[in-house]
Amino acid sequence: MPTYPESLLLCPVCRDPLTVNSAGQHGKKMDDGAARFLRCPRGHRFDAARQGYFNLLTGRGTEFESDTAAMVQARVDFLGGGHFQPLANAVSSAAESFAGNLPLVLDVGAGTGYYLKALQERVSVSASVALDISKYALRRSAKELPDALCLVCDVWRPLPVADQRVDLLLNIFAPRNVPEFARVCSDRAVALVVTPLPHHLREIAELAGLLGIRPGKATEVATSMAEFFDVIEVRRVEFGMRLSPIDVRNVAAMGPAGHHTLRIDVDSLPPTSDVTAAFTVQVFQKRAHTS
């Protein structure tokens, strides 16, 4: 396990610093060095799940519907086919260009860890933290990212990260709590925000019952970030995919449509479908003294 900066994490109950511990039963240090529990000075303790993530949801839980096990499996299967590799490459390239040396990375809405893993294969980081509301997704993240701290939390609550500690923030197809992003990011930190373009998956959108993507979504994102962050680059990433019927089902099931009954009849689909993938990658930099 990497050495994490002191006071990087905050207790979701009292907001005191959380210490990362790698001790096992009776305080004996585990041979693999994995984080075993988080504890604050007031005694609030969060033990690692068997799969390696920590659940920091407290109190009444969350109002938001997290990705189910089936949705996560669909994402693992689809992304495992390499269909979104060009997007992963674009995110990693942007991080390489703008993030600086050995950034501390926070992935808000990390999902299965696919993009964070791709980034770490290209960019040397000092430490990384993956946040998601779905424990099913973070089970995968913890497996794919053994050196990361994987934390179940609600992005609309105060994030469990101390002020001005993050150098590079990822936000890929995930909600944006911009005031909290500004609080946890250091001055001049970089935030990479990825959103789909309106014609993303257009060839199968109606067939799969996918939610429509509003025109101008990238502009809406920039406007929402403008109080604390400046846009320094916008990259448009567009490529074609040749998908099997199972791929079509998975790409539909891994997104918000997966919360509902999909109307795709896999047997009625052609052997392959040519489908467009289209995204905006926006690179933001936090203005100094705006937390």
Rank of each mutant, 00 (worst) to 15 (best):
P215Y: 00
F98Y: 10
D77Y: 01
A118Y: 08
A253G: 00
P17A: 02
V155E: 03
L211N: 15
I213A: 00
V155L: 09
S186K: 12
I213N: 04
E227A: 15
T195S: 11
R183D: 09
P41G: 08
G24R: 12
P17T: 04
R242V: 10
C11W: 05
A110D: 11
H44R: 09
H83C: 07
R214M: 03
R249M: 10
V76M: 07
S92Y: 02
A252D: 02
P12Y: 07
A99M: 07
L138R: 01
H26R: 10
D167Q: 14
L138P: 02
S128T: 09
P245R: 02
V178N: 04
A189D: 02
K28G: 01
R39K: 15
G59A: 14
P103Q: 05
L201N: 08
I213M: 01
D154L: 04
G81W: 11
T68W: 01
P146S: 02
A148D: 02
A222I: 00
V237W: 08
P196W: 11
F279D: 11
R157K: 15
V221D: 10
A127F: 04
Q285S: 15
M225K: 06
H200S: 01
V193P: 04
L201E: 04
N89A: 15
F239S: 09
K217R: 12
D265A: 04
Y53F: 14
M1K: 10
T3Q: 15
V184L: 09
D77F: 01
D77S: 14
A253Y: 04
C40G: 09
V20T: 11
F84T: 03
S93C: 11
L38T: 06
S141I: 00
V161K: 09
Y114S: 12
T112R: 05
E6A: 15
L211G: 15
S66P: 14
S92R: 07
G24P: 10
C185R: 03
S291Y: 01
